[in-house]
């Protein structure tokens, strides 16, 4: 297998091309710009179309159109740019179209800063746009996973006719690691709904999210909710280390990498610590929380967002603690060890 040293942003771009990406539109923003840069360089060779749009809003709506034509489409941005895309995402969900959206998170609110953050968790998993909707949200923690999850994302999107988001952060986008490159076997998905021309042989396909009659709007919403129920049952992904530990850390993305380092230190200091790492933050891996842990510690680069989902799952069976860091700095092993000792001693 071919191995290459790549940035996380580049790995997503390469994986998307190999997964059959045929349309990309986006607008540059740090810390994800290497992604469109890579696509601009390589997409033409693979027979795709790359557009640097005039704005993020324009880009997501171009993706909406391309997805309606039944081709694999993607956009990417970083936090403020993802906010601009929310209306389009809601329309794509409402029209039941597949696409992949990448958010390489930076700090907020507002223009925020360019350093890593996880403060768009709520926006990604609770729905940043209007209406009752969900996206499947994948949370990689290595450059290899940036690659693997992108390949999966296109299949999941096509399978459910729903946008899939890859929720990364500035470090994952910028850091380099070795990646095993492979080209997936392309699964065939039914796209008979796509607006590819009738050639006078069938009725028009209509891409639409407007349902004026309450009954029709209700039908769509019920169909979406039934779909999300199936997704929640079938698509939960999680990595669990030391499931029988006294204290379970809960972390996703780059913070989970720091947590893995913590596990080694904790062992040498006779602390019984494990890790639950959601690979899908929606659907949230509820199955992982049926442990006998005496306490949970959720660690995030925000003021406490995923911790709310952890508390729902644990449902009062054990205390759920939180440790966060905001503004672009990353939690250190020392930060986490100090909190663990405090919890273990209490």
């Amino acid at each position: 297998m071919e191995q290459k040293l790549m940035k996380g942003n580049e790995a997503i771009a390469e994986a998307a091309i190999r997964a059959g990406l045929k349309f990309y539109a986006g607008y540059p923003i740090t810390p994800q710009t290497e992604l469109p840069e890579y696509l601009a360089k390589h997409m033409e060779k693979s027979g795709g179309t790359f557009i640097q749009a005039e704005s993020e809003i324009s880009a997501i709506n171009m993706v909406y159109g391309a997805a309606g034509a039944g081709i694999r489409a993607m956009t990417s941005s970083s936090s403020p740019g993802i906010s601009l895309k929310q209306e389009g995402i809601s329309y794509i969900v409402g029209s039941e179209l597949p696409c992949v959206i990448v958010n390489v998170m930076r700090t907020g609110p507002g223009l925020g800063g360019i350093h890593p953050s996880q403060s768009d968790y709520f926006q990604a998993v609770k729905g940043g746009g209007h209406g009752d909707y969900k996206m499947l949200v994948l949370a990689p923690n290595s450059v290899q996973e940036m690659y693997d999850f992108t390949i999966d994302a296109f299949d999941i999107a096509d399978k459910y006719r729903n946008p899939v988001m890859i929720l990364a952060d500035g470090i994952l986008g910028q850091m380099m690691e070795a990646v095993n490159l492979y080209t997936p076997a392309t699964e065939k998905f039914d796209k008979s709904w796509a607006t590819t021309g009738t050639y006078k042989k069938r009725k028009h396909n209509i891409i639409n999210s407007l349902y004026i009659k309450p009954e029709e709007s209700e039908t769509l919403n019920k169909r979406l909710q039934a779909k999300y129920k199936i997704m929640a049952q079938n698509e939960q992904r999680v990595e669990i280390i030391n499931p029988d530990a006294d204290i379970m850390l809960v972390a996703f993305g780059i913070v989970a990498r720091v947590a893995k380092q913590v596990l080694d230190d904790a062992k040498s200091q006779n602390l019984s610590v494990g890790l639950i790492r959601p690979l899908t933050v929606w659907p949230f891996p509820s199955k992982a929380f049926k442990t006998a842990a005496k306490a949970y510690l959720t660690i995030e680069l925000n003021s406490g967002q995923m911790v709310e989902d952890v508390r729902l799952e644990v449902n009062g069976r054990a205390p759920v603690h939180f440790l966060g860091k905001m503004g672009g700095k990353v939690l250190t092993v020392d930060d986490i060890m100090a909190k663990l000792k405090q919890i273990a001693g209490a």
Binding site: L5, P31, I114, G170, I171, Q174, M175, M176, E177, A178
Partner: peptide
């Protein structure tokens, strides 16, 4: 980048995190 690349070529596990700003 060069050190990480060479480390990978040696068959080691490598990571490289640049400052960006």
């Amino acid at each position: 980048r060069l050190i990480a690349f060479a480390g990978m070529t040696d068959g080691k596990k490598v990571s490289m995190l640049p400052s960006y700003g």
